[in-house]
């Protein structure tokens, strides 16, 4: 054993002796092989102005809005999901549902947090439900679709507030009812156009029903909104 230990020493000593002799020049060029310069320019987002970045994202969100308004079974809403649009819509809706009662009294209408929780928790539950039923759609794609499809209802909310500026009478209620009904069916139709394909046909109704309930409840909150006199 002692011999083996002794034998180790020269081996490591030999290793430490390894050095590059001085007459070999250590120099070179560090280059990264570039396929094509034009492709590089397209992909790089590091050196572009912030305005371009923001505009590109906004353009993507806007494109998805158009897809919701014309639901033609396009898969682009599913392919590259983002949650910016849903966040924007949800915050807008929740902010506009504020101020339902007089100052100083208890606000009995839906609070910001309640609307926010209903929208996000609702979409998460619907997504989980569709996944549990054996859907092939991914979690965030489904969240993205459900969030973007609130757009018609947010538009209805804007219209309702404008109508309510003229005072709440029977006519204004009927106008609001029509607007909310149309936007509710639009939302449901748009989201099912995107979501239903991911389900086996004998379970489609089971997936569509919670979506229907979800938009129905949001539509009800919008319809019953009445601002303080």
């Amino acid at each position: 054993m002692a011999e083996v230990d002794e034998g180790n020493r020269p081996m490591f000593a030999g290793l430490s002796d390894v050095s590059i002799s001085e007459d070999i020049p250590v120099e070179g060029e560090i280059t990264v092989p570039v396929g094509s310069p034009s492709q590089d320019d397209e992909c790089s987002t590091l050196d572009e102005p912030v305005k371009d970045t923001v505009l590109r994202d906004l353009k993507a969100v806007g494109k998805k809005f158009v897809h919701v308004l014309y639901p033609k079974k396009s898969s682009s809403l599913l392919r590259d999901w983002d949650l910016w649009g849903p966040l924007l819509l949800c915050v807008t809706l929740a902010l506009m549902l504020q101020g339902g009662s007089e100052k100083g009294k208890d606000d009995l209408g839906p609070q910001f947090a309640e609307v926010f929780v209903i929208i996000w928790f609702g979409s998460v539950v619907i997504t989980l439900n569709s996944k549990l039923l054996g859907g092939t759609i991914s979690f965030f794609q489904s969240l993205c679709v459900l969030g973007y499809c609130i757009l018609p209802l947010t538009v209805a909310m804007v219209v309702c507030r404008l109508v309510l500026l003229g005072g709440s009478s029977k006519v204004s209620f009927i106008v609001r009812l029509i607007v909310v009904t149309v936007s509710f069916s639009w939302s449901t139709f748009a989201s099912t156009a995107f979501l239903a394909d991911s389900q086996p046909p004998n379970r489609r109704a089971l997936v569509v029903y919670p979506v229907f309930l979800f938009y129905f409840v949001i539509g009800w909150m919008i319809l019953t909104f009445s601002p303080s006199p």
């Binding site: 009662s101 009995l108 209408g109 839906p110 609070q111 009800w220 909150m221 019953t224 009445s226 006199p229």
Partner: peptide
């Protein structure tokens, strides 16, 4: 929802009744 609608119907037509949705 039907609780809200029923309370709305009960108070409908009352003067100075201001409908407030009860999310509670």
């Amino acid at each position: 929802i039907s609780g809200n609608i029923s309370s709305f119907l009960v108070h409908l037509g009352l003067p100075q009744y201001h409908y407030v949705p009860e999310f509670r």
